[in-house]
Simulated assay, not measured.
Amino acid sequence: MLKCDFQYQHADFILNVELEMQQQLLGIIGASGSGKSTLLKNIVGLLQPQQGYIQFNDRMLVDTQQKIHVAMHQRKIALIFQNALLFPHMNVQQNLRYAEKLVSKSERKFQFANIVELLELKSLLHRKAHQLSGGEAQRVSIGRALLSSPNLLLLDEPLTGLDSKLKQQILPFLKRMKDELDLPMIYVTHHLEELEYLEAETVQLNQGRLQTVPKFERI
């Protein structure tokens, strides 16, 4: 599925990644500044490694030796950030349809109605982005990412900034996504309890290097 062996350096920080992902959901835990977001940005194409390769399925996305660097918009990888980045002048339905329209009908992996049902967005469709709570906006952001029909979904601390009540509202939706969608996902966080709830196989990122973490062991 996903194979990475690369190095990325910025100033004094060095990220050295050796990763082979075969499971549907991989959890990556680490403290702030450990390189979690940097790792995802290299996979999606926002950053470019100085050396090494990134391969998804049979497609080489990055290979510094062969000078391969597939553009971000051609990778079919979606990245969900900590803050929902919705178009403020559009309502929820328009935000969702915007992503869907970028994909030809023959290549759409998910149907609009199914995503609306999965994330319980029907009552929100005609609201503008500024009328949504933080949790509602993040659900819309997730829905929009899914409707872009990615082959891989990256979640960069999607519950950061939400209070405990809102987190408990969104985690079941993420669990449903894992259970009901045939979509590989990488979920990064510094809260192990989120990965425990999602029953994710987990690795730890520590000072730019990935380390194995025994399942659900407290760190």
Rank of each mutant, 00 (worst) to 15 (best):
L2Y: 06
A99N: 08
K175C: 06
N57E: 13
Y98K: 09
L125T: 04
Q9H: 04
Q168L: 11
D63G: 05
Q22L: 06
T189G: 05
Q48H: 06
L210G: 04
K165P: 02
N42Y: 08
L195Y: 04
I28A: 04
V140C: 15
Q48I: 04
N16S: 07
V213R: 00
K109F: 01
M177R: 08
G33I: 13
G45Y: 10
L96T: 03
Q138H: 10
I219V: 15
L47Y: 07
Q94R: 14
K167M: 07
K167W: 02
G134P: 00
Y8N: 02
G208L: 11
V213S: 06
H126T: 14
K105T: 14
D156E: 03
S37Q: 11
R108S: 11
Q131P: 00
L2F: 05
E196A: 09
L166A: 14
L174K: 02
E120V: 13
I115G: 14
H10L: 08
I77T: 03
K101L: 09
D12I: 05
Q22M: 07
L146I: 11
A84C: 07
L61W: 12
Y187C: 06
I142G: 13
Q65Y: 03
E157H: 01
E199Q: 13
Y187L: 11
S32N: 14
T189S: 05
I43T: 11
Q22P: 02
I29T: 12
Q111V: 12
Q51G: 04
Y197P: 00
V188R: 01
G35C: 07
D58H: 08
E217P: 05
L154W: 08
S34A: 15
V92Q: 12
F87V: 01
S141Y: 09
H191I: 14
S148M: 12
H130G: 05
E100Y: 07
F81R: 08
Q51K: 15
Q65S: 09
N91K: 08
L205S: 03
H130Y: 15
K67M: 10
P214L: 05
K215G: 05
K178G: 01
T189M: 04
K167Y: 04
L118R: 01
Q207G: 04
G45F: 06
H73P: 07
S141A: 15
L85S: 13
Q23I: 08
G33R: 05
G35Y: 02
F173C: 11
A137E: 02
Q211V: 10
L166S: 08
L39K: 05
Y98R: 12
Q22S: 09
L171R: 01
G135C: 03
L85H: 10
G27D: 00
M90P: 04
D12H: 09
F87K: 11
K178E: 00
L124T: 01
K3G: 00
L155H: 04
I43R: 06
A99C: 12
